[in-house]
Design a binder for these strands. Structure first.
Lengths: 107, 107
DNA sequence: ATAATTCATAGCCATATGGTTATGGAATTC
DNA sequence: GAATTCCATAACCATATGGCTATGAATTAT
């Protein structure tokens, strides 16, 4: 699915949103209030970012009483790593082609 | 620099722009006309995307006569890989902490 | 019961974004 | 040198985006 990459890159492109995700990665599960305290924007803004992160599969939510706990879903980053590797792979393969070409020319 | 990540994610978040970059990665150096043929948008749009990719360090341009050749700068993806690894690192370190905690509890 | 807390949604607004057409400058070609 | 090609920039437009305040639903505390 190419749409997966779109959603991932798009979701991580906003600094505030990425900050929230980093916060969840580095400090583990957090409530909305705790995240809001560090985000530097209003609570509704944080909730919207969390909704987007959730839609991208980057976070999971767990409801407990009147508070919602969010946690990072690291596995969702896999397509990003795959994409990077694919770009690097293209590079190498073109390099191999060049090498191959040079070999042929050498004969 | 945290701004580096911002620029990178932001630049790669647009599908058309990412498509152009992928094109350069997979097929090597290309002229603006060649890229425009595959991009599905107008030539000025392609030029604008290329300017942004260049500003993010993701591409290099080489002027030859009246045409400009662009090529991917794979090294610019390094911060992206670093960021991903850092997120994974947080995960592992929290896991280690948990492991450590369990060990202590076990005693 | 009533009040207070926690979060999500709704509605609004300013700005950013990506696209288009029009234009112009520089380099080839005729 | 006139015409053409290649690309970048300018000007403009519709929409998307991220922020805010206001509000409401659900839960907990008084």
């Amino acid at each position: 699915m190419p749409g997966t990459h779109d959603l991932l890159f798009r979701t991580l492109s906003d600094p505030t949103r990425r900050g929230i995700f980093e916060c969840l990665c580095s400090q583990g599960e957090q409530t909305v209030a705790a995240l809001t305290a560090q985000a530097g924007v209003s609570q509704p803004a944080v909730s919207k970012h969390l909704a987007m992160l959730k839609q991208a599969g980057l976070v999971r939510d767990r409801h407990q009483g009147r508070q919602t706990h969010y946690s990072a879903q690291l596995a969702a980053l896999a397509p990003l790593a795959d994409w990077t590797n694919r770009m690097a792979g293209y590079w190498e393969s073109r390099f191999d082609d060049l090498e191959d070409l040079l070999k042929r020319m050498d004969q």
